[in-house]
Design a binder for these strands. Structure first.
Lengths: 196, 196
DNA sequence: AAATATCGCTAACATTCGTTAGTATCCTAT
DNA sequence: ATAGGATACTAACGAATGTTAGCGATATTT
């Protein structure tokens, strides 16, 4: 009888983590609980000793990621620094999250559609609010002439989606290293905003 | 008995088009043939008088989109103009495709994973080649000092993913108009590349 | 008007899915 | 050593899925 290996984590955490990897690879709907069980090294029914449902796995992933970003923007908003600097900090956080917690972040980004209410509405709300706060920082930057006059919500779209492109970096065979990736992205994205 | 309405299109085209809309909304796996049948106004089994399989629908969508982009880059590569101008032309094409053929382009972008070989490898190859050709234009621009020294594949990632953010524009309630969207995106993306 | 090909329907199929019930096994604390 | 809780197993369920077969209705051609 094959027990789930647990190194300082709960068995549930092991399952959630494997789920992230599987949902990223196949998509939430295409990944079956039997797939997940095999990845964990156990029979499908055994998973239910640790989790309530397949959807619960998605909840956990989506909201843990969303909360990390919300905490970060809480922190950044309070800083006494230029708008451009705040944006750069947020972008660097996004980039590093995408580099270091690839699978969770990716799943949260692409698979949230499969949440069901009330989680779905909740998630969408958090997302909307986050983007508005991000846009507000950009708008302040425009008023200060740090940033060229552009539509702030559009700029937010571009930034966030551009960063999700790191997905392709992960899957590519000839990767530049992570630091270079970060600097290149910052150079292009921040360079596209600044007034000169 | 409710026949499929066909205004100058084949019935198959009607089905493919509704499939695009449905796959975009729910994702390929989550969209069922019964859903599609309902959208078309017919019973599920009747669809099979016009198509071979659910996957065939995905093939058609993915490759018709991919071919449009390949034709465009064929055309742009031959032009006698600056690299920056070529890139701007490609970006504008991407943006307009994403605005005007939203659902097909989106599905091709997000759901190609569910293709099966040999279609899958084929699609991945086309995609890889397209991105290399795009990167080659950027690299020429860097050598000419039109574009600042950056990693070209990373720049391609950013551009393409940024444009896929138009998805959020479509779903948003307060849309700026399409022309403004295009100009804002060009301003930020091209602005992030140029040497000054 | 008759003949033929096209199209849509009902019914059903084999599979796969998420999940539950019930039981055996393992680990831990007394 | 043993009791009790945690964990895994086998078996099975009902529902949903893609797809096929066979038949009737409709449009098109002769």
């Amino acid at each position: 009888m094959a027990r789930i290996k647990t190194d300082n984590n709960t068995r549930k955490d092991v399952i959630v983590s494997k789920a992230a990897s599987l949902f990223r690879e196949k998509g939430f709907k295409a990944a079956s609980m039997r797939d997940l069980a095999e990845a964990v090294g156990v029979e499908a029914a055994s998973l239910y000793n640790h989790i309530k449902s397949k959807t619960e796995l998605l909840h956990e992933l989506c909201f843990s990621v969303a909360n990390r970003f919300l905490h970060k923007i809480d922190e950044v908003e309070l800083e006494k620094t230029s708008s451009i600097n705040k944006i750069e900090k947020l972008l660097r956080f996004h980039i590093n999250e995408m580099i270091n917690h690839y699978e969770e972040v990716y799943v949260s980004d692409r698979e949230w559609k499969h949440l069901s209410d009330p989680y779905l509405s909740n998630f969408q709300n958090q997302r909307r609010i986050y983007r508005k706060r991000f846009a507000a920082i950009i708008e302040t930057g425009i008023r200060n002439n740090e940033i060229k006059p552009i539509d702030a919500p559009t700029a937010v779209l571009i930034m966030l989606h551009a960063i999700s492109g790191i997905e392709s970096w992960h899957r590519s065979t000839q990767k530049i290293n992570a630091e270079e990736l970060e600097e290149n992205m910052i150079s292009i994205l921040v360079g596209g905003l600044v007034n000169r």
